[in-house]
Design a protein around this nucleic acid. Structure first.
Lengths: 234, 234
DNA sequence: AATTAACGTGACATTTTTGTGACAAGCCGT
DNA sequence: ACGGCTTGTCACAAAAATGTCACGTTAATT
């Protein structure tokens, strides 16, 4: 996984245990022991997920959750609350705050990982780095291998991300700006036409040995990734 | 024995007594007085066995045992719990966590050594004979011998650990930070570029006699250890 | 058919990333 | 303390990636 998980927990041993478990399961993590540290870390690049302790010194975790969920830029970050006990009231409040799930302490590492994966799967499946296949084109986010009919493709980082995005978002037109947002990232000052060039490079790489055209140009709209184009005879 | 036993015990006199006993019986040992120190030491090279105190400050030993037993990389490390008294509940919990045996304090050195040997004897078949082989490359963690097609390789300790990690984690891209975490250990202040240099040294050693390239550079992502890359001719 | 706008494409300078040799500090056994 | 070995870091070289431009092509529109 390319991003990271923010762990907000004031009890050091628990926090370190959590991060340990996360690291061992292939997640990157950043620690925060209080609200301030947490907020300091909720900046770009935003975490993919936040593990948030219910009881935090200097303010409850729920408040933080609420404020995050009400902010335009952070509301899409999934939050899992860590509650000290199975308090039904707390759970309800937590859910009201818009958190995605909660885990009651003590919890087993297995359970924690399971919950995390469940939430991520629900929110942005592509983060879990599963292999993607589409019409003989294979992309493995883990090994960074891309093959077409068992021929390896050589792609630069940006082309790789672009292809990854397309393969997980097929049969749909994306404008150049949408592609810039999704592949380059938000808040980048790049010319629209730059997309064209990378589309070109990706096409070249894919159909270098004379393969199908996966990327279609939709005039005036953008580009679409799809298997085969039916030619329409006007 | 080539490896070592990790002793996790907060009471210094007892801990030192244990390590003394261990040394007297030919075991190497590493001490940890709390969970954090313990985790710092549960990195490669992994201990051959862990003596884990039941009662630890800042978190119970059982939690650590659980997390270790549920983690892919550490679950095979045998654990012997040290319980302060013969508490049946504790024993059950400890066994539930997957620990291999437990010794109730106070115990005689003779008893401790006996238990340790018993556990190692029981688990050692998989532990001591953990040779790794990959495409003609052979690595023996016990003898620290590395050969490629029966040609011996000369590796420094770090290169050896790096290669060991790669050979047990193939076909996957690891960032420089991940490699530092896994090979150098967590919480080390080492430059990212240091990885490059060691990659370079490892490559030099492996393909010194003109062998295949095992380590691939994945630009913008890190390094990958894999058998063979099919080059695509654009 | 002419015109215009949108897209394709090759080239290029710049920036970013990685390879590589050298070097000094630390460690270890002698 | 002395030499050999390992290791982390640096500086520079090399390579790759990236964004932009200029110009050629194509497609829609008049």
């Amino acid at each position: 996984m390319s991003g990271y998980i923010l762990v907000v927990e004031d009890e050091t041993p628990i926090r370190e245990m959590i991060t340990f478990v996360l690291e061992q399961n292939g997640f990157n993590s950043v620690e925060a022991s209080d609200i301030k540290q947490a907020m300091d870390n909720i900046v770009e690049p935003y975490p993919d997920l936040i593990l948030l302790d219910w009881m935090l010194p200097g303010g409850t975790g729920v408040k933080l959750a609420q404020s995050l969920k009400q902010n335009e830029f952070t509301r899409n970050i999934p939050i899992i609350m860590l509650t000290a006990r199975a308090d039904e009231d707390d759970k309800v409040k937590g859910l009201d705050a818009g958190v995605d799930d909660y885990v009651t302490k003590p919890f087993s590492p297995k359970e924690l990982i399971a919950r995390i994966k469940a939430v991520i799967r629900r929110v942005s499946p592509t983060l879990l780095a599963e292999k993607v296949e589409f019409h003989g084109l294979k992309l493995d986010p883990v090994s960074h291998h891309v093959t077409i009919h068992n021929d390896a493709l050589e792609l630069g980082p940006t082309e790789f991300r672009l292809l990854h995005f397309f393969m997980t978002h097929t049969e749909r037109v994306y404008s150049r700006e949408q592609l810039l947002d999704n592949v380059w990232g938000t808040n980048v000052y790049v010319e629209d036409r730059t997309v064209d060039v990378h589309i070109r490079r990706l096409r070249k790489a894919i159909s270098g040995a004379g393969h199908d055209e996966f990327i279609q140009t939709v005039r005036g709209a953008g580009y679409r990734f799809s298997g085969k184009v039916k030619k329409h005879i006007a």
